[in-house]
Amino acid sequence: MSEIKKIIKGCLAGNRRDQELLYRRHASKLYAVCLQYSGNDEEARDILQEGFIKIFANLDHYKNEGSFEGWMRKITVNTALEKFRSRHNLYRVDDIDSIKEPDAEPDNHDYAGLEANDLLDIIRELPTKYRMVFNLYAIEGYSHKEISKMVNISEGTSKSNLSRARVILQRRVGSYTGIKKKAVNE
């Protein structure tokens, strides 16, 4: 029996040490996903907590088919989506025109020097709906049809949100790389 299967078995038996071990092993990766889907740390923290509670509560539904990490990630993303849907009315999609233009020149072809931390910061600056659609489409690989059902929007809106998200991201990335290059040259 592989180590992860032993841990899962222990978790199913209510062994607190195995539950903690499972958490310690995967929390950092899943917390990065939570941050990616949320605009603030408090919300990310809540998603991680609720996501793990669901993971432990539904472990007996995991059939050892496919990646366990992928299964946990899916639950975490679903938790983020639930959170998004429950607060849907509170979110305001900022008009694309109101977003401030970056100062530095965009550089679409040279992304060197950008680290994961920078990418996370950039993606978290997106308006909530754009961030949700971009994450589901570009990172998770869902289709617009699936996203429209998940986020409760039309396919057209999903496409439009994705397109706008990409434009903003390109500008931000350009801004980041431009600023970084400037800093290196100086």
Partner: peptide, 11 residues
């Protein structure tokens, strides 16, 4: 860029 950059990222 985002898919690869955030892959395996941990916080």
């Amino acid at each position: 860029l985002f898919r690869n950059g955030l892959k395996d990222f941990e916080v």
